[in-house]
Design a protein around this nucleic acid. Structure first.
Lengths: 215, 215
DNA sequence: GTCTATATTTCGATAGAC
DNA sequence: GTCTATCGAAATATAGAC
């Protein structure tokens, strides 16, 4: 039976599906627990309970707590990298920066846990993903800084330091995820509504675009 | 001898000094360890080693790990509240917002550990300082939002949502502390120099002030 | 006030039956 | 692939001599 399964496309697919589904279940739970408790405060037991699986199963799919954590951090990083498309596809600085703000704000709303895990990882000195900072993120940043500098040189926007502009964009958009609890408290204890998220996005866009001479 | 010390002003002072000095030693070490490892990742042993004291002494001065942590969070919060003076003392919006940015950027540089501890606390849902958010911070925010709205109503600056402007100011200034490691990595692995901190502050001021119609 | 030794709990990880 | 039982390490906190 097991031998047959090895050569059965259907069984192999089912086995693969189980693995993928359980990994997804665990990763989703882990993202939430790591965000809410930090790496040190998170326990495999908590993650297992939230995923609805015995703790031992987590170790079956992810050898160690750190392996599981690394996967969670990688996922949010890739999501952010993909948001660069909004930036690159633009023909004008107003369009590019505006679309990037919208994309990043949308990610903050849809993936607040991942954003927090990344923030905590960086705040602690990026012990696990330092290599990403030095390779992928560094390249990404230099390329976009060059694009912005090109816009400035062409007289399409005010002369600002491209790197600091990028830092400001990251800071503001991710703030709505990372400090979402504080914002919610200051909002009377209620999460931002659709309307309020739109207003937040518009506020950031308005101030930044006018701030770089595109208002 | 001990009985005499109780009634000796000099001995009482010395005893108080020892307490204050040791508490300061422990709080400084704790701020750093909590920032670099998170609450869950921090250990009393690590803090004790960094403070140069036996672990048991920490429990003599601070009953529990959480008590020690709470004190660390309170300190950065008070430092930020004091930065409001820059805001309130101003007679024009450009002066007030500009001075507030400078004050907050200066705090980010001088107290990066405290800023990170606060950020981690808020990201985890403010389990320890939720009451501060609901009382002191809420009052603080409403008062400053009213001041900003007053400037807008008087036609002294562009009409922007005062709350989102405050969030943006917090996000950008604290980003230089909380994501300092990322910025350092993107800076070629070197911490920002005096000159670069000044450039960062000017970038934030320039974009924000122009962004609210004060450029 | 200081410090060593230790009690108690809890965690990450694994063994082994099913 | 799943799950119970458990090991060994490490954590908070305290007891008690000095």
């Amino acid at each position: 039976m097991q031998e047959n399964a090895r050569f059965s496309g259907k069984a192999a697919t089912r086995r693969t599906d189980i693995r993928r589904e359980n990994e997804r279940l665990i990763l989703t739970a882990a993202e939430k627990v790591f965000a809410e408790a930090g790496y040190g405060g998170a326990t495999m037991q908590l993650i297992a309970d939230m995923a609805g699986l015995p703790k031992a199963n987590l170790h079956y799919y992810f050898a160690t707590k750190e392996d599981l954590y690394r996967r969670v951090v990688q996922e949010i990083f890739e999501i952010w990298l993909n948001a660069a498309a909004s930036f690159d596809a633009a023909s004008t600085p107003a369009e590019g920066i505006g679309a990037y703000i919208e994309a990043k704000m949308d990610i903050s709303r849809r993936h607040p846990h991942g954003s927090k895990v990344w923030a905590a990882e960086v705040m602690q000195g990026a012990p696990v993903i330092q290599d990403y900072l030095e390779t992928t993120l560094r390249d990404w940043t230099e390329n976009r800084a060059r694009v912005i500098q090109g816009w400035i040189d062409a007289g399409q926007m005010a002369p600002v330091n491209p790197r600091h502009l990028l830092y400001m964009l990251w800071a503001m958009t991710q703030h709505y995820a990372d400090f979402g609890h504080q914002i919610e408290t200051l909002n009377g204890g209620a999460p931002l509504t659709d309307r309020q998220w739109q207003e937040a996005t518009e506020s950031v866009k308005t101030i930044i675009l006018r701030g770089v001479g595109l208002g």
